[in-house]
């Protein structure tokens, strides 16, 4: 049996009396596209926060290519090749779109940050423009973040996440706060760009149509536990998932 690219073993996390994760075991193979579903408060974001070092689990182990990364800080996990986007886009609001990407490229381009090499080198600007084009953001190049619509911010957040060509990308609700008309094309743009990098993708999503369309496998959370894990169709038709995650009524209507 090959070593999975990411594996969590018995992850526990509690915030006072609230149990956010209870014995969470997830195993992800390289280049899989995994959808993560669950109602609000089910433990999806806690899972992503633990894997990316934002939260330290109370118990359990996180392994990346067999290496224990449980206690590592976010920057070291990022350097190893696990990157994430955020539910609320984490950008540099006082800078332009281009400068946001240039900072991301500058940090990703070397382990030791240069004291002298100009951030705005022609080669780096060209790379930044290429990345913006991949995500359909070229027209926003010189705009400040504060004037961008939510969908564009989401795309930029994800584009910045991928500059270091990570091995695993965790997307926290990439389509939340985006209009129904924009959701599908934005998700297609994101996944097309990510597939080109051959990254393993895990995305948290509430829209089951998006999950069904893009995920090959689904992990369903409820009350801090994984209640189903397997091929998309199988999980989405699972009785527990229908009851606790999708909602029986909603499912019946579909």
């Amino acid at each position: 049996m090959s070593t999975p690219i990411l594996e969590t073993r018995n992850l526990d996390k509690a915030f006072g009396a609230v149990i956010a994760a209870a014995a969470v075991n997830v195993r992800v193979e390289a280049q899989e596209i995994v959808g993560v579903i669950g109602a609000n408060g089910a433990g999806k974001t806690t899972f992503v926060n633990m894997v990316t070092g934002y939260l330290t689990p109370d118990a359990g182990t996180i392994l990346y290519r067999g290496r224990d990364i449980t206690a590592l800080p976010p920057r070291e996990i990022t350097r190893l090749g696990i990157c994430r986007s955020f539910q609320i886009p984490q950008l540099f609001p006082g800078l332009t779109v281009l400068d946001n990407v240039l900072v991301a490229l500058g940090i990703a381009s070397s382990r030791r940050l240069g004291f002298w090499r100009a951030l705005r080198s022609p080669a780096r600007i060209e790379s930044a423009e290429r990345l913006l084009a991949d995500y359909g953001l070229s027209e926003f190049r010189d705009r400040m973040i504060t004037v961008l619509p939510q969908g564009v911010r989401k795309l930029l957040d994800i584009a910045m996440t991928t500059v270091g060509r990570p091995a695993i990308v965790l997307l926290d609700e990439p389509t939340s706060g985006i209009s129904v008309e924009e959701k599908f094309p934005i998700m297609t743009t994101i996944l097309d760009a990510l597939r080109a990098t051959e990254a393993t993708i895990m995305f948290i999503e509430h829209d089951m149509e998006i999950v069904e369309r893009h995920a090959a496998r689904v992990v369903a959370f409820y009350d801090g536990r994984v209640i189903a894990d397997g091929p998309t169709r199988e999980v989405l038709t699972n009785a527990d998932v229908r009851q606790y995650v999708i909602g029986a009524e909603l499912h019946r209507r579909r």
């Binding site: 990022t78 984490q90 540099f92 006082g94 800078l95 900072v103 500058g106 070397s110 090499r117 100009a118």
Partner: peptide, 20 residues
């Protein structure tokens, strides 16, 4: 430089800098 300009980035959003 990248390290120099990081100051502006840190002022704007420390979390993002760490996650980069």
């Amino acid at each position: 430089s990248t390290r120099g300009y990081l100051g502006e980035a840190i002022r704007e959003n420390e979390i993002r800098v760490e996650y980069l």
